[in-house]
């Protein structure tokens, strides 16, 4: 690792990370404030229109006909497409910078002219990414916490269980990020690297929603990384999703290692 490189990376990541963190915080705060109250109204009526129930299931990726107000509301909030898309956007932006972004911008020559090994560069980028990732994940949690301060206390979730969801979401974020790292080390063009990860991320989102309304999609739903992210189960039962975490973690580790090996061996020059 190299402190100078970490500082340089953080500086480059800062605008997008701060913007995404602010948006994520605001949106998750808004959802934490609004969704429990909407959910409570439905609960009072003891009736949810079938279309809306279906939509809710699609949002959660599981059948949610039973469950507490807070559990369902916060599950929807934490798997809301806008939240996931913003999180993936930050991950993709941050992780496709080196080397694809540097090659495309033409700064790779000056970067590689510095006395750092390729693994030092990769580890420094990884540390900067982890710091920025923790920041945006914390922003989501903080947003939810602040939003929940303005609602009826009985609609608030268990903060410990929500921390479990945060960890699971962190694993999803790590997977998308390391796919970005891998794509960024394979490609000389950042656009191509972004497109590659974007296709996987959007594909996963769609597959996760499709599998509840279209049977053939169920057979391949395991390919979606959201298949391994089920907030409702954690909020209802308070159990760690070890299997999901292991699968997400293993794929993340493989992608990260492959990215590092690729970076250590490939030509690194301006086009």
């Amino acid at each position: 690792m190299n402190l100078g490189l970490i500082q340089r990376a953080l500086r480059e990541m800062a605008p997008v990370t701060l913007l995404c963190a602010a948006l994520l915080s605001a949106i998750s705060g808004l959802l934490a404030y609004a969704l429990p109250q909407v959910q409570a109204r439905f609960a009072q009526r003891s009736f949810i229109p079938p279309g809306l129930q279906q939509l809710r299931n699609v949002m959660l990726g599981v059948d949610s006909s039973t469950g507490g107000i807070a559990d369902i509301a916060f599950s929807i909030g934490w798997s809301h497409p806008v939240v996931l898309i913003l999180l993936c956007t930050q991950a993709i932006f941050v992780c496709t910078r080196v080397p694809a972004g540097e090659i495309e911008r033409g700064t790779i020559d000056i970067l590689m002219g510095l006395p750092v090994s390729r693994w030092q560069l990769f580890l420094s980028e990884t540390v900067a990414w982890l710091i920025s990732g923790l920041f945006v994940l914390a922003a989501i949690y903080l947003g939810s916490f602040v939003g929940a301060m303005f609602i009826n206390p009985e609609y608030r979730p268990s903060w410990g269980k929500l921390a479990m969801v945060l960890v699971n979401l962190g694993f999803v974020y790590a997977l998308v990020s390391t796919l970005g790292l891998l794509a960024g080390t394979i490609s000389d063009r950042r656009g191509r690297a972004v497109l590659f990860v974007l296709v996987i991320a959007v594909g996963s989102l769609l597959l996760n929603y499709l599998q509840l309304i279209w049977d053939p999609a169920k057979h391949v739903s395991f390919l979606s990384f959201l298949h391994y992210y089920r907030p409702i189960g954690m909020l209802q039962r308070g159990e760690w999703p070890w299997r999901d975490l292991a699968i997400l973690g293993s794929v993340t580790l493989c992608a990260w290692t492959a990215a590092g090996v690729m970076l250590s061996k490939r030509p690194l020059t301006t086009l």
Partner: peptide, 10 residues
Amino acid sequence: GYVPGDLRLW
């Protein structure tokens, strides 16, 4: 110390 031919900086 190295100065590339087509120098680009951040």
